[in-house]
Amino acid sequence: MSPASAPSRPSKYRTLLRRFSSNPLALVGAAFFLFFFLMAIIGSHVAPYAFDAQAIANRLQGPSWAHWCGTDQFGRDVFSRIIVGARSVFFLGGSGTVIAAFFGLMLGLASGYYGDLFDEIAMRGCDIIMSFPSLLLALVFISLSGPSMVNLVLIVAILYIPIMARVVRSMTLEIKSRAFVEAARIRGESDPYIIFVEIMPNTLPPVFVEMSMRFSYAIFLVASLGFLGLGVQPPSPDWGMQINEARGFLSNAPWVLLCPAAAIAVLVVSTSLLSDGIRNMLQPSMGKR
């Protein structure tokens, strides 16, 4: 499409990459995040033991070369269970966040663009959802509908749609008043064209930043639900559930509890480092304090 005479200019992606890689904390975050993400995909194939292989004789052994994180009350390998459990964390948190981002984006765009009564109803709806403590709302929802994978994804999405919608709405309100949108109106462009071609691309950077942040909160939420026994059901491994089950042996076998807890902490921290890095990359002026 471009004329042959166009001079080479620094690629936009290269600039973004350079900005990201100049931030060492973001790189560390990205490394841990990628490790867990990889495990979520291939974890069940590379785990040293099957996650449900019981060996009662070896129960509650401390960390050793054979069992890096020791074994639990049924003699199952804690490390393998953590690796395999990464999948449910990523699946629940990730798909919940993506769904929330999609619907939040649509709702926010429509709310901000059309304003008036639609905006009023949508935003008050969001207020209602946000006025409940998220864990409480999740507990009520899961106890009513049952702890299935679908319901867990759904509750993550429901909790985060209002937050995403608010971010997008405020961006939309600001962009809507800019002159290029007025120029499009004067050209007689349709509403969908203005919303999706003129406005939406400009709202995406903050949406990505918010998504990465929401994902780290989603990990927390899923782990908390697992801890309360409302997450992934046994025998599938789940970090929160692992911690809950290990409570009884905290004094004589702390590794059974501490290892999955550390996994949660590392993943949450690395995700928020990553999200800081993404924010600095996409919105360099916002990151500086």
């Binding site: 002159a179 290029f180 007025e182 120029a183 004067i186 691309p201 400009n202």
Partner: peptide, 19 residues
Amino acid sequence: ILKRIQMVFQNPDASLNPN
């Protein structure tokens, strides 16, 4: 009619879509 009336805006930064 739209074709016949066009506008130039004050702030050049805001009058073009950055994307």
